[in-house]
Amino acid sequence: MDPHRRARVTRSEAGESRWEVATRELPAGLRAHVRGLLGYSEASALPCLRREFPLPQVVVIIEFGPPIRVHDDAGVASRYAGGFVAGVHDCWTETGHDGSQRGIQLNLTPIGARLVFGVALSELAGRVVHLDDLLPRAHRGLAARLAELADWDDRFDMVESFIATRVAEARVEVATVAWACRRIEACAGAVDIGGLAGELGYSGKHLIALFRDRVGVPPKLLARLVRFDHLVRRLKSGPSATWAELAAEFGFADQAHLTREIRGFTGITPTGARALIGDLAFA
């Protein structure tokens, strides 16, 4: 194996909690469809509850250990033994475990998820679905097969092969919406959707219909999520800045607009969100 493609494993401890995170460089052919792929293992003395922020991606959790809890908007918890798929959403989600979790997190672009799962992403938007319910018969039980493998590299090989196979088998046309998504990403969400539809020669209504199928949400909401994603990354690793400076940098009308957007996506104040962003280990 190419040494640059070997898994890098990081282990850390804090008090009575221990983490292991494994990552590996993605093959070039998958980078258009995969935002991130990592293996994780966590053990703690106490139960854990985390608030996950919405991002412009479809999250696939493949579990080897006890299934984690996923709380809906009413706070009702569900478990999905073997794993689940969370579609694009515009609201935070709370997840928890009783002291341990282990598995793989696969973050797909919306277009990548459309190709891998072969269903209109409007069926997944704002929802969490059991992984096996979205897999063809040949790929069901993926979590159990991954759990039996010896190391992270073998597991990553299997997941990458699964993605490549599903993308190669896909028969849905995604080039138009993929181009529009790249434009939105390149502008960090600051794009005129009406102008984008005009460039494509489509009505706004037709573009929205295409996005609901290929992405799950309308292009305006995707652009807002992309802008929020860029803001989150800026807060995680960029230089310090005031909220007013960040509002100007990311094209918000003013600081009050930025505050409303952060509250809407996270359910907490900007200051509270900033404190949690550093703990988004699996984002």
Rank of each mutant, 00 (worst) to 15 (best):
D73P: 01
L37W: 00
V88L: 15
D153P: 02
G238S: 12
T165V: 08
L26N: 09
V159P: 13
V70F: 09
E249H: 03
R227D: 01
A168P: 07
I277H: 05
K220G: 02
I62F: 02
H97D: 00
A168Y: 05
E160Q: 14
I68Y: 10
A223M: 00
H230D: 02
G238R: 07
R263L: 06
K220D: 12
V70P: 07
A186Q: 10
Y40L: 14
N107S: 13
V128L: 08
A125C: 08
P3T: 09
L37C: 04
L49F: 06
V159F: 02
H71E: 15
V88P: 07
I277T: 04
V159T: 09
R155L: 03
L258K: 00
I208H: 08
F84P: 04
D157R: 09
Q105K: 15
A28R: 14
R102C: 03
V167K: 12
R31G: 05
G264K: 02
L142W: 12
I68A: 11
Y202I: 08
A248H: 06
P219D: 12
R24M: 00
F250A: 09
A178W: 06
R140S: 04
F64I: 10
E185A: 14
V174R: 05
W92E: 06
D153L: 10
S161A: 15
I68L: 14
R35F: 02
E249S: 09
W19A: 01
A22K: 05
V174Y: 01
D133Y: 08
W152Y: 14
L26S: 01
E123S: 15
Y202Q: 12
A175S: 15
L115K: 15
F211P: 06
G87W: 07
L26D: 13
A86T: 12
T165Q: 11
R171A: 15
R137T: 14
R11L: 11
S17I: 06
M1W: 03
V191K: 06
N107P: 03
G103A: 04
P219G: 10
G141M: 11
G83Y: 07
A28V: 11
F117K: 11
R127I: 11
F162K: 08
I111W: 02
L200F: 12
T10P: 00
A275M: 13
Y40S: 01
G82H: 10
G238L: 10
T259E: 03
A209F: 05
G96Q: 01
A244D: 15
A209R: 13
W243G: 10
E123C: 12
S122F: 03
V232H: 04
P66A: 09
R114D: 07
L46S: 14
R6T: 13
V9C: 08
D72P: 07
A164N: 09
A164D: 14
D154K: 09
D98P: 01
P67H: 11
H230W: 05
A180Q: 04
L258C: 01
D2Q: 13
S44H: 08
V9H: 06
R79E: 15
F117I: 11
F53D: 00
G96Y: 07
D72Y: 04
A247W: 00
L30F: 13
H4M: 10
V174W: 04
L149W: 06
R155Q: 14
A247Y: 06
L231C: 10
G36C: 03
V70E: 04
P218Y: 01
G272P: 05
R35C: 10
V172I: 12
